[in-house]
Nucleic acid binder design. Structure first.
Lengths: 121, 121
DNA sequence: CTACGTGTACTATGTTACACGGTACACTTA
DNA sequence: TAAGTGTACCGTGTAACATAGTACACGTAG
């Protein structure tokens, strides 16, 4: 009954917003996220949509959910799943092919990556 | 009436297959692609789906289509569209955040990029 | 224990993108 | 003229997405 016109599902957009805040250090390990219903009000989404994002984030070990208590930021994983690494390489391949096509230098890509890594852990 | 179970639309998959062949030098500038109906037979797709991919590829200046003649590989663009650059940076940001989360070093990302750039133009 | 907040699991409805089948048209080339 | 090209439709079916609403099991504060 909603959805205006997007290229990415709302629950995925929310996932990336949370992931970015974790990577930027805005959300610290152990910190409690707003409840499903609170986050729904904040983001203007349906609680079910937020729940879907939370569930997916837990499957990726980004957050930990304790029924009855809430959801909390988890510490970063030490080793990467093989399937995840493949997905990452595929995505990076797409980016690189596209960059090469429009004459963006590899050094430009390198510096973009380093900028993001430079932010506090 | 089809679609088995995928994370990416068939027409986008075809787009990336063609883009990759261009980047790898398998498809040369000016080369003629199979017709919509031929490609449909080759790839096991509906002609409409192939046409959708071709149309999108032309919108991205990857191929050139001449009605009545066929579709041909175009030379690489010299300058990048601002909107395209933004999309690229967003995608690269997602990759970097994810890599950082699973403790993949920036140098690892750099070498993956360089490998892809190393292939013949 | 009670009341509230938590995540979760349903059912149901409506919209949209995908992919398909089929037909038709304007164009180019042999 | 005949065949092949890209393109543009209409219609159908499937699946994902997002919403609304209800209900349940759990933990915590009162």
């Amino acid at each position: 009954m909603a959805q205006i016109q997007r290229n990415q599902p709302l629950y995925e957009q929310l996932m990336w917003r949370i992931k970015a805040q974790v990577a930027a250090g805005v959300l610290v390990i152990g910190e409690k996220l707003p409840s499903v219903r609170e986050m729904a009000l904040i983001e203007g989404l349906n609680p079910n949509t937020v729940a879907k994002a939370y569930k997916a984030l837990e499957a990726q070990n980004v957050i930990e959910t304790v029924t009855g208590k809430g959801t909390f930021i988890r510490r970063n994983g030490e080793n990467a799943d093989n399937e995840l690494v493949e997905q990452l390489k595929n995505k990076l391949t797409e980016v690189t092919i596209e960059a090469k096509r429009v004459s963006i230098s590899p050094n430009q890509l390198h510096s973009w990556i380093d900028e993001l890594y430079g932010e506090k852990q």
